[in-house]
Design a binder for these strands. Structure first.
Length: 797
RNA sequence: GCCGGGGUGGUGGAAUUGGUAGACACACAACCUUCAGAAGGUUGUGCUCUUUGAGCGUGUGGGUUCGAAUCCCACCCCCGGCACCA
């Protein structure tokens, strides 16, 4: 279904291709703005409508700021290392090394077909050795700062992807990518010490303008909690159990101690008559398993309450996590719903220590203490302070801050990733590859499938693995694990600033000029993955004085998910996927762009409509025919028309404001109104000034660049619209000379009156009283509310 | 359960942030154009009642106010995230 727009789009795309300078960000006299999209992960699937939404939104803003006279940095690149690409390559029996460049070409062509204005001279690719040389270099800096370390640890292992995963990559016990249930495996893994940055990652969220939801997710993920660690002496044993609590004031309500099955003293606590059951219970409770129901076993041992000296039973239970806090808690069933549930199930006593009428368990912070010896009658807050001080003085407690955040597991037992630049020497241990030997390039191989043994496929490539220790020269082996998918994307926004630099990852002067990213636009699915890792990485670079901002992305905008026409998430199995290529074929790239921006607010989820896109196609056609017809007019007695001046200013005002606020849908609707009025007047034979047509082309340009540029040339303009100044509105036309007053009775609209702008309250009321519709109410009026230039309300009540 | 976002015509959505609810579209209907269709154009379109007109109307119930989609309280539902994190 070829149409005229296809021809127009081809024509201008060819011209843009020949004029790459249009979109180069190299005029350093202008103010800067850095508009960044989350670069695509180059999987096998190609571009989907979500990409189009993301890139079009950013492109509108980029084109707008270029016309506003900014030095706009709007780059694009490719994130291509990692599991999805590798899995796809395996599935289709291709080597990722051959397959990735092909795929990049495909993506690039699709993006160019959309008319997105990227500065292609800055294109980057995370799998290019010239790029990952610096990813590896940065890893070595982490190592120097002791922010990277190798440790054997139980890690989440995906049996399908056959690699260890980070905590962030495990969603509800399943692999983030393939959905398989993960297992726990003990593996020697590289870790990055992200926990050292927990406080700063938390605090600096205050400095960025991000959607509240994403900030909150990061806060939750970091999970900072301040509390107290308290030692409970175990009866008849020479050790004590340390518990963690954030509610120490409820200690008089403690009726049991609960520890996790993996707790180191679990077995030691078992008395002889309980040993059999305890041992059985510990063996049966595999870690990492989802807890559906609380189970537990009594150890036979008792702890001594540090104040009341009563005996408290010690239980082992599955609802206590081994790796949070101390792996042990004091059970306060009256004021913790999990402890309550457990106590109910095993008939343990429940002691209420907060005075409340609400049903137990009461977890609130309001009320006074009861039955708590010297805490009784104190408020919860005061009691907490007092007991904390007391227990610390006794030497059995200390203040402790716990985090949910764990160190970032940084090794993957896969082929398709950046090799970790380490050499394992039998004498020197882990030796970093000297910086001058970087990059450690990934060898080209025939077999790259994961082994599943916990060993990387690289281990089998002997002439790559075997090397010499850079320190002592002894025969050594290379580290065969690779970096995770997220490594390359932790700093790509910096490489765009100076993509061809071979001396350093980017020139500090350029970093100083461009950073931070002003707008970062992309999906919300990266809330605690990429966006957390990149912030951490950036902060390390900041500490090394390699970047000048604490945060990489000043403002974050998430585009909403586009659902299928059936209001369901697009998926192959549902068969409701809309393919952008098809849409371009049936309509045009401009139609696709404008439609996606018109569907609804940029940040909301919204369903696709096959009918809706027709309306946009018609709208663009109306614009095109208006320009074609206008061109034909010979007798150009060009008129300025007062009402058009007004409408023009109003439209410029609206479109300008809306673009800055990412409200593209309402910007487009005001363009529709503007077009309709021009078309209406034109069809009535009115010969209005060309200026109004120029404004239409300029305002349309960010949204539908091909068509706008074509229209621009139809009215005899030669230059690229990219170089044209964004139109300005005339303030004087934004104000109405005559004001419309709403006349209400008891707040309900009855009529309107037009009156001059500076009419006094008296004048307005007098005029309103003359209205026929008001007649029957006038006798009952008790009060008149007057709002200048807006409303006069007659109150009868 | 907790956190974040939301609930407005047949549909997608507007609403200057407390002041004309339903902009702009889609769909539908009638008419114009056409041999016919497509495309285009004009008009109508929240609901109810008998038109004029009136009443009702932004998830539900209450409140504040001259006036509430907008603010407050309670509740229901949908989407996204987290989930025995002590």
């Amino acid at each position: 279904m070829a149409n005229i727009f296809h021809k127009i789009e081809k024509k201008w795309q060819a011209k843009w291709e020949k004029n790459p300078n249009l979109w180069r960000a190299n005029n350093f006299k202008k103010p800067k703005i850095y508009i960044l999209v989350m670069f695509p992960y180059v999987s096998g699937e190609g571009l989907h409508v979500g990409h189009v939404e993301n890139y079009t939104g950013a492109d509108i803003v980029a084109r707008y700021y270029r016309m506003k006279g900014f030095n706009v940095l709007h780059p694009m690149g490719w994130d291509a290392f990692g599991l999805p690409t590798e899995n796809y390559a395996i599935k289709t029996k291709q080597n990722p090394m051959n397959f990735v460049p092909k795929n990049i070409e495909k993506f690039k062509n699709q993006i160019k077909r959309l008319g997105i204005s990227y500065d292609w001279s800055r294109e980057i690719n995370t799998t290019d050795p010239k790029y990952y040389k610096w990813t590896q270099w940065m890893f070595l800096q982490f190592l120097k700062l002791d922010l990277a370390y190798e440790k054997e640890a139980p890690v989440n292992f995906c049996p399908s992807c056959k690699t260890g995963l980070s905590n962030e990559e495990v969603i509800e016990g399943k692999c983030e990518r393939c959905g398989s249930e993960t297992e726990i495996k003990n593996l020697l893994q590289w870790h990055l010490r992200i926990t050292k940055y927990a406080d700063r990652l938390l605090d600096d969220l205050k400095e960025v303008d991000w959607p509240e939801g994403i900030k909150e997710m990061q806060r939750k993920w970091i999970g900072k909690k301040e509390g107290l660690e308290i030692d409970f002496q175990v009866e008849n044993k020479n050790f004590s159990i340390r518990v963690f609590t954030t509610r120490p004031e409820t200690i008089f309500g403690c009726t049991f101690i609960a520890i996790s099955p993996e707790h180191p003293v679990a077995l030691k606590l078992a008395t002889s008559e309980y040993y059999f059951f305890v041992e059985k219970y510990i063996k049966s409770s595999l870690s990492g398993e989802e807890v559906n129901e609380k189970t537990g076993v009594f150890t036979g041992s008792y702890a001594i309450h540090p104040i009341t000296k009563t005996r408290i039973p010690i239980w082992i239970t599955n609802y206590i996590l081994a790796d949070y806090g101390t792996g042990a808690i004091m059970g306060v069933p009256a004021h913790d719903k999990r402890d309550f549930e457990f106590a109910k199930k095993f008939s343990l006593p429940i002691i209420k220590v907060i005075n409340t009428n609400l049903p137990l368990p009461y977890e609130g912070e309001e009320g006074k203490m009861i039955d708590s010896e010297f805490l009784t009658y104190l408020s919860i807050k005061d009691a907490r302070e007092k007991i904390t001080e007391y227990l610390i003085k006794q030497g059995i407690a200390q203040v402790k801050i716990n985090y949910k955040l764990r160190d970032w597991i940084f090794s993957r037992q896969r082929y398709w990733g950046e090799p970790i630049p380490i050499i394992k020497c039998p004498y020197c241990g882990n030796v970093p590859v000297p910086e001058e030997d970087l990059p450690v390039t990934l060898p080209k191989v025939k077999y790259y499938e994961p082994t599943g043994t916990g060993e990387s496929p690289l281990a089998k490539i002997l002439d790559w693995v075997n090397t010499k220790c850079p320190r002592c020269g002894a025969p050594s082996k290379r580290e065969t694990n690779t970096m995770p998918q997220w490594a390359g994307s932790c700093w790509y926004y910096l490489r765009y600033l100076d993509p061809k630099n071979n001396e350093r990852f980017a020139d500090p002067k350029l970093i100083k000029f461009w950073m931070p990213v002003d707008y970062y636009i992309g999906g919300a699915e990266h809330a605690v993955l990429h966006l957390l890792y990149a912030r951490f990485w950036h902060k390390v670079l900041y500490d090394l004085k390699l970047v000048n901002t604490k945060e990489p992305f000043y403002r974050l905008v998430n585009q909403g998910i586009i659902l299928g026409p059936d209001n369901e998430k697009m998926s192959k199995s549902r068969g409701n996927i809309v393919n952008p290529e098809e849409v371009i074929k049936n309509y045009s790239a401009d139609t696709l762009r404008v439609y996606e921006m018109f569907m609804g607010p940029f940040e909301s989820t919204k369903p696709w409509s096959h009918e809706g896109i027709n309306g946009i196609f018609r709208f663009l056609n109306r614009i095109y025919s208006l320009f074609k017809e206008y061109k034909k007019v010979k007798n150009k007695k060009l008129l300025k028309i007062e009402e058009l001046e007004k409408l023009e200013s109003k439209t410029i005002f609206k479109v300008t404001n809306d673009i800055e606020k990412f409200k593209f849908n309402t910007a487009i609707s005001s363009l529709m109104e503007y077009q309709r009025e021009l078309s209406r007047r034109f069809s009535l034979g009115q010969l209005f000034s060309k200026k109004y047509m120029e404004t239409l082309a300029k305002l349309l340009f960010p949204f539908a660049p091909h068509l706008a540029q074509e229209c621009w040339s139809l009215i005899g303009k030669k230059e690229f619209l990219d170089k044209v100044k964004w139109p300005e509105y005339n303030k004087k036309y934004l104000k109405e000379k005559e004001v419309v007053y709403l006349v209400q009775v008891d707040g309900k609209l009855k009529d309107k009156i037009k009156i001059k702008e500076d009419a006094t309250q008296q004048e307005v009321i007098e005029a309103a009283k003359k209205l026929q519709k008001l007649e029957k109410f006038l006798s009952k009026v008790k009060k008149i509310v007057f709002v200048k230039n807006k409303i006069v309300n007659f109150v009868t009540k």
